[in-house]
Simulated assay, not measured.
Amino acid sequence: MEPLHVVVMGVAGSGKTTVSAALAERLGWRIAEADEFHPASNIARMTAGIALTDADRWPWLCSIRDWMTGQARDGHSTVLTCSALKRSYRDLLSGAAGRVIFAHLDGDSALLAERMASRAGHFMPAGLLPSQLNTLEPLTVDELRAGSLRLDISESPERLVEAIAASLHPTDEPAQRAVVR
């Protein structure tokens, strides 16, 4: 069976880390946090409240794609957290060996801001949330048809994990997998 990479995507505060950790544990797959692939210069920019540019992101995204390819070549499926805000970023990540699907954790900006305000120890300040929301390009119809999902973050992490896991074993009704409400 071809290795599969599930990229849990969304803006800061959407629950990517929580959902990814639970999903990886449930599936017994390898996990990576995209933030760990950032060079120190990117972390310094974000810590200072400076939004990253595409020029900042391309090398970071390439290193993530290369990690996924290495894992696939070793026969491992993975779960990865990554904002993957633009279609072009997702296209680059989709170039990894194996099959890549995206699980977009999407939700209300007020809930996202509330979550960001309540978390501690993360370099991403809440002040960059509007920049991420402005950059975000939601999954397209063709991405959804290819197996990616859009999930509502007002649902519990357990329900989100269940929806993602269920999507990996599709039923005869793919439209029901597209959005969890």
Rank of each mutant, 00 (worst) to 15 (best):
P157V: 14
R30C: 09
D35Q: 03
A51I: 05
L139R: 01
I153F: 00
M46S: 07
A113P: 11
P157T: 13
C82P: 00
T53Q: 01
H76V: 02
W67Q: 04
S83D: 07
D56T: 02
V141T: 15
A22T: 14
L128R: 08
L149G: 01
R73T: 14
L129V: 05
I50D: 08
A113V: 01
E137N: 12
R26S: 13
E36Y: 04
S20F: 07
A110W: 11
L144D: 11
R87W: 01
L23P: 03
E36L: 11
A21E: 14
W67R: 12
R99Y: 00
L52T: 04
F123P: 06
P157E: 03
A48M: 10
S83I: 05
V79E: 04
T140H: 09
A120S: 12
E143D: 07
A72F: 03
T53M: 07
V19M: 02
S94R: 06
G121Y: 05
A22H: 08
I31P: 00
S41V: 15
W58G: 06
A51C: 07
S77T: 07
R90F: 07
L136C: 08
L144K: 00
A120T: 12
R99A: 02
A34T: 02
S63Y: 00
A146V: 03
W60Y: 09
L52N: 06
M46W: 09
I31D: 00
D74I: 04
T17C: 05
R87M: 02
S94D: 08
A117L: 13
F37W: 02
L111P: 02
K86I: 10
S156Y: 07
T53K: 05
A113I: 00
F102N: 08
L151M: 06
L139S: 03
S109E: 14
T69K: 03
L112D: 01
S131W: 08
C82L: 14
P39C: 12
A126N: 13
R87H: 14
N42M: 09
A22Y: 10
A34S: 12
Q132T: 10
T78F: 12
S41R: 05
L85F: 06
R87F: 04
F123K: 06
D108Y: 01
S131Y: 01
S41C: 05
P125T: 10
A97M: 15
L111C: 07
A32T: 13
D108V: 11
A96V: 09
T53N: 00
E155Y: 04
Q71E: 13
A51D: 10
T69P: 10
Y89I: 13
A21D: 12
R119S: 14
A84S: 14
E137G: 08
R45K: 15
L129P: 13
Q71P: 06
W58P: 09
P130T: 04
A113D: 15
P39Y: 00
L92N: 02
I153G: 08
